[in-house]
Design a protein around this nucleic acid. Structure first.
Lengths: 347, 347
DNA sequence: TTTTTTGTTGCAATCCATGGCTAATACTTG
DNA sequence: CAAGTATTAGCCATGGATTGCAACAAAAAA
């Protein structure tokens, strides 16, 4: 029917409607400056011609893109195709929150080596940035400063940082570590092991460890902790660390509860324990962190700490939009929740 | 140091370099029309001023956005925050392939009810579309036709479709179902059950079922199949369907092998079997499909069929780019691979 | 009837980068 | 030394929508 050699522009509509092009523009934004009848006529024609506002022209003129960019830094230990499930669920909620605010989302998986810091907002492709990922805190630090200097609108997922105030939304990992340890203590466990990287490169895991230690100290059991810091975050890390742990501490030094800094490591820990002919939760209580989908399908299902990713995504988006609109925001520390399942032995 | 009240434009650089603005533009695209010395000088100044080409202006002029849009249709049965892990790994590889082709990626999770069909390419926000998701084939069909009419550049993930040729890249689900069933047959199983939706709304699962049946017919065991079609795709679907199966078929009618149309359902099936006091693979062989991360962490680890998501993502992107450059593409049917683990009983 | 107000619409500048065409310079070559 | 060829850079139109300002008409007030 309607043969269009090329895409319709507002001029084509103006011609068809017998009005000026500016009137078309105004009509399509529901400007009160244009007569309702004219507006409807124009809208009708626009629809017939399958006209869509050219975002490039529109954004250029308005100097904003109605687009947010999500920069996802990969966990350096994870392989190429698998993405940390926690970030996935954040991705889902961020996408939804972005869409319901009428914005588009540009997603980019990055290495810290790239010069991501400048690209999106400076080139006007996005009005703001969300930084998601466990930080390699060396040049990350530096790039955060750059972003701040350039007055880029951005927020990061992570614990609030005194050096960079009001750019963070994070979950209270200290509290999470504390809560789950308390739960184990309440169930009578006395000898603990912690599996996970507590180095500076993984501040989230470190905070979980510190929360755990804090609970132990409160219970006057601080010295009952057997550390294992050489596991990073994967299932096989957890497996290997646990095997090592089982070999090293035997007899009455054997730990009763194994606190893993991630669910993936907890899954590995359970596998190691099974491989040694023992069982969870009978011989060991094992707990994880993150409540990834696999943790509920594991046998036994894993007791873990859940971060509210839906709320987190929404907060990141709504606060970023505030920044974009020049309102001020403050750091937010979200409260995690305990998810009690079978692996801790408490029914 | 450099105080900029507002973002630098190519005019600012031209002024600073004492050349015309067009020369700046050419210098920054490494045009051979500009003297190497001038070019370096301009580039230096551009860097000092932290200049970035305005994509909106650039895209407007060039009439292309160097951006692809990924439209992800959710599995209607999955809840809000969890996304089908298979799509996640596709998302990862698509992102990477897109980035390495120098394109940006716009990601959007959609309901089919939205008028997505028109939005991105028509508004020049993206040069092409990738459609990912198990199709609700009613209005999906209709929208595909619309996209084709409008000559939108797009590709979909899914089995090639005679009605819509050369827009599909998919995995051979029939072959996958066939392969895994053959493997079970080779291990001596004779009585089979299939769990999964084989209705028209899930053509992928249906093809897996048909592949499975084909292998059984070849082995003259076609009548040995107990169907269960009331499970869709989740863990609890698999659990409930399996319980029902176990109650319904007892004694010598009890199936030996349970073929699940997804790993999630296989996980549920194993849980149901355990709950009834039986074990996998001793009492039943169970197999899944997709090779999601959780399937390797399950106890026992699940024998499944893997689709090469990395390659799939790359193919989708490279072929879409071909379309954008007006080259023609053909449908691709990728070959799946068997991943043999413990749940099928064959070591 | 004249003046003021109100409601609509058009003109033209603007956002910024791109690239065809032209002009000017420098360098060959007969 | 003049004519011819590269090389390099500038001019200006272009892409499509937005919006301040001016213009005009019709309706209301004087």
């Amino acid at each position: 029917m309607c043969f269009m050699k090329s895409k319709a522009t507002s001029f084509d509509i103006a011609y068809a409607a017998g009005v000026s092009q500016s009137t078309v523009s105004r009509a399509l934004c529901d400007s009160p400056l244009v007569n309702p009848e004219t507006r409807e006529k124009i809208k009708k024609i626009a629809q017939d011609l399958n006209y869509k506002v050219d975002k490039n022209a529109s954004n250029l003129r308005k100097q904003k893109s109605k687009t947010l960019a999500l920069l996802l830094f990969e966990d350096p230990t994870s392989d190429d195709s698998s993405i940390n499930p926690f970030f996935i669920s954040m991705l889902g909620s961020i996408t939804k929150a972005t869409a319901s605010a009428g914005y588009d989302l540009l997603v980019s998986f990055q290495n810290l080596s790239d010069d991501w810091h400048a690209v999106y907002e400076d080139s006007n492709k996005a009005d703001g940035l969300i930084l998601l990922g466990y930080g390699n805190y060396t040049d990350y630090e530096h790039k955060l400063s750059q972003l701040e200097e350039q007055e880029t609108h951005f927020l990061r997922w992570g614990a609030p940082d005194k050096n960079h105030p009001n750019i963070s939304i994070g979950s209270d990992n200290f509290k999470g570590g504390y809560m789950i340890t308390q739960h184990l203590l309440a169930n009578g466990h006395k000898r603990f092991a912690f599996i996970g990287d507590i180095g500076a490169s993984a501040p989230e895991l470190k905070a979980r460890y510190e929360g755990c230690m804090s609970a132990l100290h409160e219970a006057k059991l601080g010295s009952a902790m057997l550390q294992h810091v050489d596991a990073i975050s994967t299932e096989s890390d957890g497996y290997l660390a646990t095997l090592q742990l089982l070999d090293e501490f035997v007899g009455d030094k054997k730990p009763q509860a194994i606190v893993c800094a991630s669910d993936l490591m907890a899954i590995g820990a359970i596998r190691a324990i099974n491989d040694r002919g023992m069982q969870v939760p009978k011989d060991f209580a094992v707990v994880g962190y993150d409540n990834i989908p696999a943790s509920s399908f594991s046998t036994p299902a894993i007791t873990t700490v859940q971060q509210n990713t839906v709320l987190a995504g929404q907060l990141l988006v709504t606060n970023l939009l505030k920044l974009i609109h020049n309102e001020s925001v403050v750091d937010i520390l979200m409260q995690p929740e305990l998810v009690i399942r079978r692996s801790c032995g408490a029914n």
